[in-house]
Amino acid sequence: MEPILELLQENSIYSTEDMASMLGMDKDEVEDKIARYKEEGILLGGHAIIDYDKLENNHIVALIELKVNPQRGRGFDKIAESIYRYPEVKSLYLMSSSGYDLLVTVEGNSMKEIAYFVARKLAPIEDVVSTSTHFILKKYKSHGLVHRSIPVDERENCN
């Protein structure tokens, strides 16, 4: 993969100056490349990865399996569109599973809020046959990062 993308994937809050020094490039060069990745739709965006357990907020994430009837001539795309339009939906994947077709990630402030969203918005969509909601109770690792107490540098100075 392109080194700039590798860096951004690792940590999207690197400044362009830092990336330029780490890669031995000019700042302008880095900015041009990032602009091009965005234009070409390669770079969609960057998110901070927050350990919500360390904040007071209620932050609930659910994975929802949807079984749907594909539509003639359009397959799953049209149904997918009517699902991903909801801002509550954070990700949506077509799956190869035999048990269900679409996997939806929904975020909300409470289990009840998410349950209502599923019952009122997702379940009634035409061609959605059934839903199955799984709440995430604890995140151990996400986006390649382990959620844990602040790591301590335990290296000793041994010459």
Partner: peptide
């Protein structure tokens, strides 16, 4: 802030 350690992080 130490930059003294002679081992990988």
């Amino acid at each position: 802030i130490s930059l003294t350690v002679g081992q990988p992080d």
